[in-house]
Every structure is written in C-alpha cells, then in structure tokens.
C-alpha cells in the first residue's frame, strides 16, 4: 500500500511540476518587472487564459479519446465570422441579415458544432485517421471562413468584418467587478467540463475509449457515438473561443487563429494529458493554459523579442513531454 501511494504521487507529479514552475515563473517575472503583477497585466493573463483555455478544454476531450483536432483554429475563425457576419452591423456590410447578439452566438455555435460533428462522422464512419480528417477539415473550414466573410463584406476578398456590438464587446472586453467576463465564462465552462468528465458515464466513457477501444466496446460503450459527441462538443467550445476573439477586437478576421490548434495541443500536453489518449484531466489543461498565458505575457512584459519566445516555447514543450515520459518509465519500472 505504501509503495502504491508513492507511485501515485510520482504520477501526479507532472501537474505538480507545472504548478511549481508556474509559481516560480510568476515570481521571477514579478521580480524582473514589478508591473508584471499589476492589475492590467493580470487582466491580460486572465483574458489570454480564457481565450486559449476554452478551446483547450475541447482539445482535452478530443485528445483523451486518443484523437486530435487540427481544425480548431479554422473553426475558431469560422465561428467568429459567422457570429460577426450575422449581426448585419458590420462596416460596409452587404448582407441583409441582421440578427440580435444572442441569435448570432447561437447560430455560430451550431455551425461550429456541425463541423465537429462532421469530423466525428468522417473519423468513425470513413475510418480516416483523426490527424488527416481534421487536417482536411482545417482546410475546408478556413475556406468557409472566406466564403462567409466575402458574402458579408463584398469588397476585397478576405477583408475582415469590423463592427460595433455591445454583446460582443461585453464578451471580449467587459468586466464584472475586476474580473474579465471572458474569464468568468471560462471558469463556468471549466466547471461544466470538469463535472462532465468526472461525474457522468459519458464523460468516463471518453477515458475508456481512449484507453482501450476494445475494452470500451466490451463494456457496452457505443464508441462511435462517444467519439462523434466528443468532436462536436470540442468544436462548440472552440467556437466560443472564436466569439471571444471577435469580441475582443470588434472585428472578425479571415486569418484569425491560424495555427492556434498547435497551441491548444501544447497546453493539453503540458498539463500531462497523454497524446495517446485515456489519461489526463482538465485540471492539467488549466495549469498548462495558465502556464502558457503567464509565459506569453511575462515574456512580452520583460520585452523578450518574439523570436526568442518561439525558441523558449519549443524547448518547454519538449521538456514537458520528456518529463512526462521519464516519470511514466519510472512508474513502470518500480
């Protein structure tokens, strides 16, 4: 029993490690530049966390099934242009549609969910590897972004949709007390996903599917349904991130969120979720997201040039994964 306890402690260490790093990093940046701990900077960190965090929640679900979703960045942009486009208040808007804020959000998320649903169907029915299926979807969804944007703003192809809307401003820029609205949204969604993963059979099935799909089938789990559901939910979460991005800038760009999917995967992997599936938690992803947010904002504030930031991020990712592998090896050996 004692030995088991120790082993499990080693297991959790990946998350603890990130948490410890997080604290040190925070202290380090604060010492280097006291304004890092200012309310303005903290606010920035929380906003970054919300933007990346919500989508990373979705990515966590997908990775837990043993899959991956490369279409996340495109879906983010798609959700953004649909939401902004339907407002009908864009500058030089040519579309006659003009819907209220809530309706645009709803429709944008339905379309995001639809993309995820299609991902799931292609993966389960056509049996295409998630990597390739979502790679193709990345291309398709990005194309749709242009279709939507161009039909809204009939100017130069690929122009952004710029607009004014109180709902979006609240979502992307508003605060309740001192806390950004988007962060509150993030916290709520985090709790929902946490409870879903921990306390529902469907949530647990996601772990089972990722752990061993044959075992899952034997246990009577409808694996295809679970996978489709996971991709759908994931894309809806990604869509919410997309709307926040649009709200923040009051503009929906056609090139928005390009390559973000890899940041989401990084956040998830940093949090100790295995890219092979079946193991991990959203708490880890929360830590991973916080880690990236603090790192980004901190490097900006201490004025590290963006190219050094690339280098640092690459190194950290390899380091995190190596630490994970190393610990797993130790567990297996002992």
């Amino acid at each position: 029993m004692k030995i088991n306890l120790r082993k499990s402690l080693i297991c959790i260490n990946q998350q603890k490690l990130i948490a410890i790093f997080l604290v040190f990093m925070f202290l380090g940046f604060t010492l280097a530049k006291p304004e890092f701990a200012s309310s303005y900077s903290i606010n920035n960190i929380l906003c970054t966390m919300a933007l990346y965090g919500i989508a990373s929640l979705g990515m966590t679900l997908v990775i837990l099934t043993g899959g991956t979703d490369l279409s996340a960045g495109s879906v983010m942009a798609l959700s953004g242009v649909i939401g902004a486009g339907l407002l009908g208040k864009a500058f030089s808007a040519a579309n006659p549609v003009s819907l209220p804020f809530a309706a645009t959000v709803l429709i944008a998320l339905i379309f995001s969910g639809l993309i995820g649903y299609l991902n799931g169907i292609v993966i389960t029915k056509l049996k295409i590897a998630p990597f390739v299926a979502t790679l193709a979807m990345m291309s398709i969804a990005r194309g749709l972004v242009y279709v939507v944007a161009d039909s809204v703003v009939q100017g130069v192809s690929g122009s952004p949709i710029t607009f004014m809307n109180d709902g979006y401003s609240l979502l992307g820029q508003g605060k309740i007390g001192a806390v950004p609205v988007q962060f509150i949204v993030y916290v709520i969604l985090f709790l929902i996903v946490f409870v879903f993963l921990k306390y529902t059979r469907t949530g647990r099935s996601i772990y089972t599917v990722g752990g061993n799909i044959d075992t899952a089938k034997l246990a009577g789990i409808k694996t295809n349904k679970i996978i489709v559901l996971t991709y759908t939910v994931s894309s809806i979460l990604v869509g919410i991130s997309g709307l926040i991005l649009v709200g923040r800038l009051s503009s929906a760009s056609t090139v928005a969120a390009k390559g973000y999917e890899l940041d989401f995967i990084t956040a998830v992997a940093l949090g100790g979720t295995s890219v092979a599936g079946g193991r991990g938690s959203v708490i880890g992803t929360l830590l991973g997201t916080a880690f990236l947010a603090v790192l980004n904002n901190g490097l900006d504030i201490v004025n590290v040039k963006s190219f050094y930031q690339y280098l640092i991020k690459g190194l950290i990712l390899v380091f995190a994964v190596c630490a994970d592998l190393f610990m797993n090896k130790r567990v297996k050996k002992s």
């Binding site: 059979r201 647990r204 099935s205 772990y207 089972t208 752990g211 061993n212 044959d214 075992t215 899952a216 034997l218 246990a219 009577g220 789990i221 295995s274 079946g278 193991r279």
Partner: peptide
C-alpha cells in the same frame, strides 16, 4: 482488459458506474 490509468473501482464498474 483493465485500463491501467483508471482506478480499480472504475475498472470494475466500467460503463456501469
């Protein structure tokens, strides 16, 4: 067919928690 990274209890009640 146990899933290594789930608890004993969960493996027993897999899909029937």
């Amino acid at each position: 067919s146990c899933l290594p990274y789930l608890s004993v209890a969960e493996n027993i009640f897999l899909g029937r928690q």
